[in-house]
Structure formats: structure tokens, C-alpha cells
């Protein structure tokens, strides 16, 4: 029986297929208007990758935005639980995971068994989220890789308050138009620092201080992770496939359910 975890994010939907604790395949696809459609597209593709039969026996657990609305799911779990389990599967000695998604960022504190102790979430506004970074990248006409590369050349960050993504945009524009203009690397580092400040406050709020890991699409922003490491004064673990951590957690939980069923 296959254990399947599906994480429906605001921008992308992630599906992970596992069998008996082994990762078979993972898939990332765009989120569509309907939760059902997004989930089934991602799952079908993931099953294809895993080389499964047409209609295999499976146990599906969903999570994320609209995870409860998926009709073919056997269960749905909170995103925090899934994040905790997912990162525990990758690195069991992690004690807190920083998740930066497209429209929210959160920090989840976990214990030595991969259970959630506490969490802080920020989803009220775009500052400190992936959408904020995406908008900045678009504004400066740079790719995420180019931004990361440039940020390493800066010695100090430009001042960007980052309390609002819209206002940050005008702040960046005014840095560009300043006489003399602020160098691009400094602006980028400033953007990273403003996101880091958001994350740092959340970490402080729940007392997450050591053995940190990152997940979510923004974890692919190497420059941001480096800035976070500097700001939080420690190494931060980046899993192999940071985007799929929550889906992985859902799949792990599905596997546990399968085991329970077999025992009965």
C-alpha cells in the first residue's frame, strides 16, 4: 500500500509517494483554482514518476491551504504537524523548522520525537514571504540565483524596513534613484535582512534557538539562508528537497496510518 502526502500551497501543490518508509517520488505542480483538481494533478504525476500501477492501493493525507476540501483524501492534518514530521524524516535532530512559503512564513518548534511543541505563523501580509521576494526579484529583473550571488558581494545591507511589501518596493526604487545610487548587492542584502528580521522575531517568540532547518520554496534562495545563518548565528540545515517537506510529513503520517490498519 502506498502512502501519499499532498501539500496544497497557495502557489504550488506538492505530492510525495512513499512505500514502507521509503521515498519513491515527489512532484511539484501549480495550484489550480479547485483544491481537488490541484491535488489530483500533483498526485497522478507523482504516481507516474513512482512507476505505480493505474489504480494502486493508497492512503492519502492532505495538508495546507484547502487540504480539507480534497474529496478523495483519507485524512487531513495541520500544516505544522506535517512540517514537523517531514523535517524529522530528513534530520531527526532538528528542533525547529523555519518554513517560508509563497504567502506565509512560520516557525515550528519540535521535540526529539518529531512532535510539535509550539509554533508561530505569519500569514496576514506579504512581508517576509516568498511573494515579497518574488516581487523584488521581478522589480530588479533578477533571478533568485542571481540575487543570491549578488548578495554575497555586499558588506552591509541597505535600509529596507520591510513592514509592507508594497512600501518596500518604493524603498528599493528610492535606493536606486539616490545620488549616488545604493549598489545592487547592498539593496538585495537589505531585502534579505528585512525577511530575516521577520523570521528572527518569530523564532524569539516561541523560543526556537538551536538545531534549525528551513523548508518551503524560499529555502532555495541560498543567499537568504546564508543571511539567516548570519543573523541567527548558527548553521541552518537545508533538506535535499525543501519544497516538499510538508508533503513528506503528510506521507509519513499516511504511512503510520497504514501500519495501524495492518496491526488491527
Amino acid at each position: 500500500m502506498l502512502a501519499i502526502g499532498i501539500d496544497i500551497g497557495s502557489l504550488t501543490t506538492k505530492a510525495v509517494v512513499m512505500n514502507d518508509g521509503q521515498l519513491l517520488a515527489s512532484e511539484v505542480s501549480n495550484t489550480l483554482d479547485e483544491a481537488d483538481a490541484s491535488a489530483s494533478v500533483a498526485m497522478t504525476k507523482a504516481l507516474e514518476k513512482a512507476g505505480a500501477d493505474d489504480n494502486p492501493e493508497k492512503y492519502v493525507i492532505t495538508t495546507g491551504n484547502g487540504g480539507k476540501e480534497v474529496s478523495f483524501a483519507d485524512g487531513s492534518k495541520a500544516i505544522t504537524t506535517c512540517l514537523a514530521r517531514g523535517i524529522y524524516w530528513y534530520a531527526p535532530d532538528t528542533r525547529a523548522v523555519i518554513d517560508i512559503g509563497a504567502e506565509s512564513s512560520s516557525v515550528v518548534k519540535i521535540n526529539n520525537r518529531g512532535r510539535v511543541i509550539d509554533w508561530a505563523n505569519h500569514d496576514k501580509c506579504a512581508s517576509g514571504t516568498g511573494l515579497f521576494l518574488q516581487q523584488m526579484a521581478k522589480l530588479m529583473k533578477l533571478s533568485f540565483e542571481e540575487m543570491s550571488e549578488l548578495s554575497r558581494r555586499a558588506e552591509k545591507g541597505a535600509e529596507i524596513t520591510g513592514t509592507c511589501a508594497v512600501f518596500a518596493e518604493s524603498e528599493v526604487i528610492s535606493h536606486v534613484h539616490r545620488v549616488p545610487p545604493t549598489p545592487l548587492p547592498e539593496i538585495i542584502l537589505g531585502i534579505y535582512l528585512s525577511v530575516s528580521t521577520r523570521i528572527k522575531t518569530m523564532c524569539k517568540r516561541i523560543g526556537a534557538g538551536e538545531c534549525l532547518a528551513v523548508s518551503g520554496g524560499v529555502a532555495l534562495h541560498a543567499g537568504l539562508v546564508e543571511t539567516l545563518e548570519k543573523e541567527l548565528k548558527q548553521r541552518i540545515y537545508v533538506p535535499q528537497n525543501p519544497v516538499c517537506v510538508a508533503a513528506m510529513g503528510a506521507a509519513v503520517l499516511a504511512g503510520e496510518e497504514i501500519k495501524k490498519e495492518l496491526q488491527q
Binding site: 497557495s10 483554482d33 504567502e103 496576514k124 501580509c125 506579504a126 511573494l131 515579497f132 516581487q135 509592507c164 511589501a165 508594497v166
Partner: peptide, 18 residues
């Protein structure tokens, strides 16, 4: 359910598509 200008924009787009 949001007042964030960035989120409202994406939410409005989602509604437009529907």
C-alpha cells in the same frame, strides 16, 4: 479576508479567473 495589498491582488485575480 485579507487587507494586504499583495495578497488582495492575487485573491482578486483568483476571483476574476472564476
Amino acid at each position: 479576508n485579507t487587507i494586504c495589498a499583495v495578497f488582495a491582488k492575487t485573491e482578486a485575480l483568483r476571483h476574476l479567473r472564476k
